[in-house]
Amino acid sequence: MYVLTLEKEKRIVQPNPEAMETELKVNNLNVFYGSNHAVKNVSMEIKKHAITALIGPSGCGKSTFLRSINRMNDLIPGAVCKGEILYEGINLLDASVDVVSLRKEIGMLFQKPNPFPKSIFDNVTHGLKCAGIRKKDVLENAVEESLKLAGLWDETKDRLKHSALSLSGGQQQRLCLARALAMKPKVLLLDEPTSALDPVSTAKIEELLMSLKKRITIVIVTHNMQQAARIADQTAFFYEGTLVEFGNTRDLFENPTHTRTKSYISGQFG
């Protein structure tokens, strides 16, 4: 009980998300996969240094929405994104945007832990090396710093040269987090990062995200509504490609305005 009340108190002290600065401003986003209209006319403001959760049933377009922010949809033949995603005054969907530098600032963590079949060290330094950083001491410092941020340093400091595949699933996902953090991203996109993990590993990741949001804007797609309720400042509910409801997490879960949101969060469909 003590823990619960403490958590409640913490929530009350938190600033009202709506008063916070905007990091990503999405205007009329439409995404098509060939003839499939996957995201329909979505507009929303993602707040800086806050956690925004995207929830909704499978196939509702939340992952597609997420992947259009760092232009991962470019990899899918036939995918077309229309509209605006404004980040530091630039429309990220513009053809002239350098996707390589964009992805250095907007990192991503995937559903399934996907470390490279290389050493732990090489996994963390992959992005840095691709960015042209070769100095050994810089790389070593970055590895230590990132692994510490991802809460993996104590478990791996003695075996940085070991294969990343020798780690457990939860450790692998934290390694992927460290790998993304090594790039010092300003925004971190997470696509159901804990759906393949056990509850203990999930709790660890959630804890990490709560501490990371002080410096990083986090957008997380989740199937787990308790997870959204636990960690998100703001929550968006997607249904069949449209953004049905978006607001402060507490309001959305306690007082949903739409009947669809209400029936989804009460578990009537999904």
Binding site: F110, N114, G127, A131, C176
Partner: peptide, 10 residues
């Protein structure tokens, strides 16, 4: 694997 690398700005 490919997506992971692209997402890191490679």
């Amino acid at each position: 694997q490919k997506e992971a690398s692209f997402a890191l700005g490679a």
